[in-house]
Design a protein around this nucleic acid. Structure first.
Length: 550
RNA sequence: GCGCCCGUAGCUCAGCGGAUAGAGCGACUGCCUUCUAAGCAGUUGGUCGCAGGUUCGAUCCCUGCCGGGCGCGCCA
């Protein structure tokens, strides 16, 4: 019996009590079931009686009894106790719990998927680092978390498009181009420019690809460096992200917005909506009407559009491409954008609560030998995605970044995450998978076939704990999707790995030596295979490999 | 000054209103002649920043304070 089925059974028990006139309450749409921390409290517990006590006008324990009486008649339910103030503690019989192994194995790759977000078209924009340098660490957090979230939302049934907004227009790009040109000429980079080894490399490549570029006049040469430099930089970004396992469905060029006149369209639309005004020669958006701190300039007094107008055009473009929900993943240093992004959606006539969502990720610091690794793009000692992958590998990097709540700033200890040991959480989880895989290989060698599951044989306490943990997985994925919190999947996997290791320690799966295989061996093989399914599915959601051997 | 985030074990962090607040690391002690010891079992460890409020019940929700991080351009 799955938690979802049990939840439905409890609800049915409430319904039955109401139908019989024992309770006069509206039946809740959904009954929450939880797994108690203490095993004396049964396999599952619900506080539904505590919640219904008030509307019923009865003491919670009386309500609990009324529900318990009906629930005890449910097939698979071994015992229902009323405990404490009115909790219902439910114990399943071994067969009902063991049947979960079958559910998991039968579902295979699709175990954990759901339909809560079916039909929802989601645009997930993340990284979007400017092509003026390698992908830096703040953006890398979102590469790991964003890609994982994309997989999780997909598992929840959403139609997800991963998108990278690629700023190939504007003054930062001009500074980048000027820096390349100066470096190629052997001149010092401008004060507001970019420096570092990567600038020298790109400059050299541009020169190699464009013979005679240094003989061009200043403006032409700068344009050559801009186009070629952005191209090279972007290719480097794309390939380092691909090495990290992150591939976007759409790489959206800001320049296209300009070239296609979408900024003008957006401005016209906002003006038609009556949201713009002129002041001191500039055109403004009255974003304060929708909660922004201050109004924002759309077109400068010199006639140049602002970056913010491009943001408006870009949002409009996303909506016109049919996205119901536009999710932006930003670093904490950009949280000041939230207000204006919400306001711009509202200015177009949308309800920002429905169509726009901004996720903020706190900053990431690297620590090595107990000392923070300082970084500065200007000075050129950038800590990039590639540096991190070189130091700890893609699996550890993705896992390390995805296992923490985005709300909490993190210090990544490179020494720890590079270690191939048990203090490294990613190895703990991967090791569990490798152990499972090894066991399944051995079973195959022995010619042990798991046959037909006899769930009632799975009565060991550690088997029950493992089955219970396996049953939680779909809810974990659903919650991670709903709250946009991939770290829940990682934490769950660590718990599952621990539960498996404890099961493994206590329950011999394969027959020893010349021992004859029993149905218990075969039943346990079902549980092991179910564990493999869940560990593999969970790691896949995080974009981390599930090794067969370690 | 205003805004967002954070404050939980020695350290790094979980805990979308429930029962006795958890995990890993660290420290200490045990467990490998047969399925991976990258594992397991045990010991150690807490005024959930402080003060009020909401309620059957608050680490969680609300208010105020204290402490820390990050923001508040006709920059991008």
């Amino acid at each position: 019996m799955t938690p979802a089925e049990l939840s439905a059974a409890v609800r049915a028990a409430v319904q039955a009590a109401v139908d019989a006139g024992d309770l006069a309450v509206p039946v809740p749409a959904e009954v929450r079931i939880e797994r108690p921390r203490v095993k004396e409290h049964g396999d599952y517990a619900t506080s539904v009686a505590l919640q219904l006590a008030k509307p019923a006008g009865r003491p919670p324990r009386e309500v609990a009894e009324a529900v318990a009486t009906r629930l005890r008649e449910t097939a698979g339910v071994a015992a229902v106790d009323v405990a404490g103030p009115g909790f219902l503690n439910i114990t399943l019989d071994a067969a009902a719990q063991g049947a979960l192994a079958q559910t998991v194995v039968d579902a295979g790759d699709s175990y954990g998927t759901g339909s809560a977000m079916a039909g929802e078209k989601v645009n997930l924009e993340f990284v979007s680092a400017n092509p003026t340098g390698p992908v830096h660490l703040g953006a890398v957090r979102w590469a790991a978390v964003g890609d994982a979230l994309g997989r999780i939302l997909t598992a929840a049934g959403a139609d997800v498009t991963r998108e990278y907004y690629f700023n190939d227009a504007g003054s930062q790009i001009d500074r980048f181009a000027r820096s390349l040109l100066a470096t190629a000429k052997g001149e010092p980079v401008p004060d507001d420019g970019y420096a570092g080894a990567y600038i020298e490399e790109i400059a050299a490549q541009v020169v190699a690809q464009n013979k005679g570029v240094l003989d061009q006049d200043e403006a032409t040469a700068q344009e050559t460096f801009r186009v070629a430099g952005v191209d090279l930089m972007f290719e480097e970004i794309r390939s380092s992200l691909a090495d990290f396992g992150v591939v976007f469905d759409v790489y959206f060029n800001e320049k296209d917005l300009h070239d296609k006149g979408e900024l003008d369209d957006a401005l016209k639309r906002l003006t038609e909506q009556g949201r713009t005004f002129e002041q001191e020669g500039a055109t403004w958006l009255r974003s304060t009407d929708f909660g922004d701190d201050r109004d924002r300039v759309l077109v400068r007094s010199n006639g140049e559009p602002t970056y913010f107008l491009a943001d408006c055009a870009y949002y409009l473009d996303k909506r016109q491409r049919g996205f119901d929900r536009c999710i932006y993943m930003l670093g904490a240093d950009h949280h000041g954008y939230v207000g204006r992004l919400r306001a711009l959606a509202a200015c177009f006539g949308d309800d920002p609560d429905q169509t726009l969502e901004v996720l903020i990720g706190q900053l990431v610091n690297l620590v090595r030998d107990g000392e923070p690794v300082r970084m500065s793009k200007r000075a050129g000692n950038v800590v990039s995605l590639e540096d991190m992958v070189d130091a700890i590998g893609a699996d550890a990097g993705r896992y390390a970044l995805a296992r923490y709540s985005s709300d909490s700033p993190i210090d990544l200890d490179l020494d720890l995450w590079a270690r191939r040991g048990n203090d490294n959480p990613v190895y703990y989880v991967q090791y569990a998978h490798a152990r499972v895989a090894s066991l399944l290989r051995n079973a195959a060698e022995l010619g042990l076939d798991k046959g037909e599951l006899q769930p009632a044989l799975l009565s060991h306490e550690r088997e029950g704990a493992l089955l219970g943990a396996l049953g939680e997985y779909p809810r974990v994925v659903a919650t991670a999707a709903e709250l946009r919190e991939p770290h829940r999947v990682a934490r769950y996997l660590e718990e599952l790995a621990g539960t498996y290791h404890r099961f493994y320690d206590a329950c011999r799966v394969l027959p020893r030596g010349d021992e004859e295989p029993t149905d218990t061996h075969r039943a346990r093989l079902w549980v092991v295979e179910a564990t493999r399914v869940v560990l593999a599915n969970g790691l896949r959601l995080l974009g981390v490999s599930a090794p067969e051997r370690m």
